[in-house]
Each structure stands twice: as structure tokens, then as C-alpha cells.
Amino acid sequence: MLELRLVQGSLLKKVLEAIKELVTDANFDCSATGFSLQAMDSSHVALVALLLRSEGFEHYRCDRNLSMGMNLNNVSKMLRCAGNDDIITLKADDGSDTVTFMFESPNQDKIADFEMKLMDIDSEHLGIPEAEYHAIVKMPSAEFARICKDLSSIGDTVVISVTKEGVKFSTRGDIGNANIVCRQNTTVDKPEEATIIEMQEPVSLTFALRYMNSFTKATPLSNTVTISLSSELPVVVEYKVADMGYIRFYLAPKIED
């Protein structure tokens, strides 16, 4: 028996909008720790890891570890029927091949049940080792989204370089090239407007902008984004999901042959 009640149901709506472009089908795993997902895009270039900790739910009942295969486009269709202020409850019985999404309006005058078929998905979990990153950049998520969008009108790849000067996003294409430098800036009115650069050593990596742009679908979840870089490692682009967890996007770098 599984029953997860999320008062801030809009978070789940935003989570689905954030990952459905990157991943088609995925297993949602429920355990005592929380509600999680790990999945790769169809090209195995990017990986998304979601965790919503059990403490973040108003009610969290998960009698045994359960893995539920879902088509994310279909989940998104279901969740789009929930109001932004609705309380969302996920329910599944042991051995059932369906999951039920229950939507309650804030004043309890409307209650809806949407039952969705589950699917069998073969997926292997990858071990993501703890890594020391050469540089960690925390910046406003809207700023990062703007940079990725702007650069993708010029080129296909972005070089992200962190030095003492700041973080530089560069691209080149047929019509020309572009460089955007963001310097550390902590003298802002609100902490979420700050750009904070922690650098152990300079790092420069090349990534496909198509994936970066896909990651920025998570922007509505959080005012800030954290970009962790190490040479020879996938970049981690992390958005916090309120105080209950995170979405982490891992993207393998491009290398010169």
C-alpha cells in the first residue's frame, strides 16, 4: 500500500514539466527515504535524478519498496488536470498495475480521482559517486535559462569556463560567436539574486546546449540553480524542490577527438 499526500501539489506538476521533455518512460521508486526517480534520456547522454524526501509529504505511507513504471507524458496529462493550489495524493495498492492521483481543492469542495495504467520498464540504476567538484556556481535560475536560450540562437554547444574572473559561457556558430561572463555578485537585495562562485581550480568543459535548454524547464521550481563542474566529469545542474528535495541533471561533456 502506497499513499503520498503532497499539500503543495504544484511542486509535483512542476517536477513533471521539468523532466518530461528529457525522459519518456521512467520508474518512480518509493521507499522509506522518499519518492525518487533516476532515468537517462534516450541517447544516454544526460541523466536525471529526482528525490522528494518522505518528510516533505504531509502523509507518507510506503509499506514496502515499490517501483512504478510510468510514461511521463501521460503523468503530465494527469497532473495538468490538478489545480495549482490543489493537494495531490498518489495511491497504489500492492501488486496493482495502476496508480491513482487524487486532487483536492484547497477548501475541499472538489475532489477528483485520476487512475493511470502503470507499465513495465527495464531500467538499471547507475551509481553516482560522491565527487569533489573543481567549481560550483550558484546563480539565479532565470539568468541561467536566459543565457542558455540566448546562446542556442548562435551555436549548438556551450563552453563553460570558471576562472578567478568568474564563469564564462561561450558559443560559436556559422553567424559568429558569443561570450557571456558572470562575475561573483553577493551585493544584491535578495540572496536568491546572488551569483556565488566557489572555485578550487579553473575548469573548462563543453556541453550540448540542447540538453542545457531542456534542464532549464525546471526553472519554475527554484529561484536559484547550482552548476557543479569538474574536468572529466558530467556537469551537475541542480534545482531544489522547495525544502523537500531536488532535481539533478547530469550531462556528459563533449570532448575533442
Binding site: M40, S43, V45, L126, G127, T157, L233, P234, A252, D257
Partner: peptide, 14 residues
């Protein structure tokens, strides 16, 4: 042109 690597090159199956 730079070559795209895959995630499994960095993370092994559990």
C-alpha cells in the same frame, strides 16, 4: 567537431 560522450562512461551500473 567535439564528440559527445555518454553517461555510462562515467557512472557504472549499481
Amino acid at each position: 567537431k567535439p564528440r559527445q560522450q555518454v553517461i555510462s562512461r562515467f557512472f557504472a551500473p549499481k
